[in-house]
Write a protein that binds this DNA or RNA. Sequence first.
DNA 1: CATAAACCCTATATATTTTATAGGGTTTAT
DNA 2: ATAAACCCTATAAAATATATAGGGTTTATG
Lengths: 138, 138
Amino acid sequence: MLSKKTKYALHALTYLGRHKDEKTVLIQEIAEEHGISHKFLENILLELKKAGMLGSKKGKGGGYYLIKEPKDIPLSRVIRLLDGPIALLPCVSLNYYEPCEECKNEAVCGINRVMIQVRDETLKILENKTLEDILKEE
Amino acid sequence: MLSKKTKYALHALTYLGRHKDEKTVLIQEIAEEHGISHKFLENILLELKKAGMLGSKKGKGGGYYLIKEPKDIPLSRVIRLLDGPIALLPCVSLNYYEPCEECKNEAVCGINRVMIQVRDETLKILENKTLEDILKEE
DNA sequence: CATAAACCCTATATATTTTATAGGGTTTAT
DNA sequence: ATAAACCCTATAAAATATATAGGGTTTATG
């Protein structure tokens, strides 16, 4: 399951997507809309900004805005950023690889092999679904 | 990512699959093979047994054994049993449904819609990969 | 140029979940 | 009778996720 961080990020991104015509949107506005703690959401928006998905404007009248087209923000990107690996095991993660402690020999591990297949097929799904798909469904 | 419980369960199941010709296999044997705590693994095997995937024989000379054909044990089953929902959000889970707290109206939520699609496609993968696939890759 | 609004940053506290341990109970081959 | 092995429940420890706190910096505006 996705963490609340990722869920909140998706809500924030879709909110910003719906308000693309406005120059900026306040953290507070998004937080109130979804009953999220202002400060918690702030941390999340900062991460999204550092990752290049959002822009922001400081000072009075400032706020956040989408810096990319919704079609260019795949779910895989958001999930990886806030939740970490999409793979089901560390030993098959492309972005967060680690060997599995209990595995004697990864080179001959059937679980490893199958999980690589699962990972590849899962990635196809999550790379193809984008923020635009969410907005279109509303 | 899968929990250690699920990982250990997969290791235990494949171990039992590889030793199908023997009548029973000891917990201790599987635990040592993968460096898993005996007692922790015991809890997992019990869950698998209650779920009808394993059989056991009590008393001296007893142990565990596979009660189903490896091809009839899909990954989805093992994951759901030990890790819970496969869906990315509670509001789209088939087996563990709960409404999302921060969602005002599920009926018009684009995130919900897209996550249903993701769930269905993910399920196709995990229902089709079975213990047999893991054993074949070894 | 003072001020208030708003983002920026880091550290810490709380809650929840996962992982592991403990200790005995029950069954059964020998 | 006995020892080996599964069965069951409760609790402890560790890790992670969630939330809070407190101040710093930037900037539109009057």
